[in-house]
């Protein structure tokens, strides 16, 4: 069932993303072509500048689109009237959330890669630095980035799940939840770090970063991020299971 949900979610979002992706790919190709031309003519350099500008604008538009789509698909398809269909399909609430999360992550990753397409292509054609095989640390870092992305998306979902419990101004309530919870988490984070530091001082331990091996920091961060994902996911699922309040 998750597979079917994913199929429809990818189909619905591809309608929006694929045209933008195609436009950006064409722009990137055009730019590479222009760079390959001799740079003496004024017209060519102006054209290169213009295409570059459009590329940057398009890439920026892509990032915005990705965020808007990521938020609105969840909000509209699950929490709006379409929720009457989605939550009465023979699927679990967890599957419904994952079916939004996975495409959202894929499109975000795709959009990010596309933004650097020109750089990547240029690198490739100019025979620049060959693609490096990532070592363990890089892999750990990439994993952390992915988990952070998932955590952020799930955090947005959780805030919308909180906002929809209100009878009016659901979206405003979602934004409010986002700001307040972020604020609380920041304060807790600072307080927690400060508390640890105090504890360390009391126990007469030295918490110098030098003493801690890099891999364990990375591993710890990964575990923490995974925990954050789990917490946000479970809260979202609980809210949509027990406190669903479709308009």
């Amino acid at each position: 069932m998750l597979g079917k949900l994913l199929k429809y979610e990818f189909r619905a979002t591809a309608r929006l993303f694929l045209p933008i992706y195609a436009a950006i790919a064409i722009l990137a190709g055009l730019m590479l072509l222009l760079r390959a031309l001799p740079d003496d003519a004024r017209g060519v350099s102006f054209l290169t500048f213009m295409v570059g500008l459009i590329y940057v604008v398009a890439a920026f538009g892509l990032v915005i689109t990705t965020v808007v789509v990521l938020v609105s698909r969840f909000y509209k398809n699950l929490l709006g009237q379409e929720g009457y269909l989605m939550f009465t399909l023979p699927v679990t609430t967890g599957q419904n959330i994952l079916a939004k999360l996975i495409p959202a992550m894929c499109w975000t990753i795709g959009s990010s890669l596309l933004c650097f397409l020109v750089v990547i292509l240029q690198n490739f054609f100019s025979g620049g630095a060959p693609i490096r095989i990532p070592n363990g640390e890089t892999a750990g870092f990439i994993l952390l980035m992915l988990l952070a992305l998932a955590a952020f998306i799930l955090f947005c979902y959780m805030c919308m799940a909180i906002g929809q419990t209100f009878n009016e101004h659901k979206f405003l309530a979602s934004v409010g939840a986002f700001i307040i919870i972020q604020l609380v988490l920041q304060i807790l984070g600072v307080a927690g770090a400060f508390g640890l530091f105090k504890l360390g001082a009391l126990a007469n331990l030295s918490f110098s970063v030098d003493n801690i091996p890099g891999w364990s920091v990375l591993a710890g961060a990964n575990v923490a991020m995974l925990a954050a994902c789990a917490v946000f996911f479970l809260i979202t699922r609980w809210l949509l299971d027990k406190k669903l309040n479709l308009a």
């Binding site: 009237q81 929720g83 009457y84 269909l85 009465t88 399909l89 023979p90 679990t92």
Partner: peptide, 16 residues
């Protein structure tokens, strides 16, 4: 999920 495969529901709204 199990019961929903047996229940056909027509809500009082436009849901498609």
């Amino acid at each position: 999920p199990e019961s929903r495969s047996k229940v056909a529901y027509l809500p009082d709204t436009s849901y498609l």
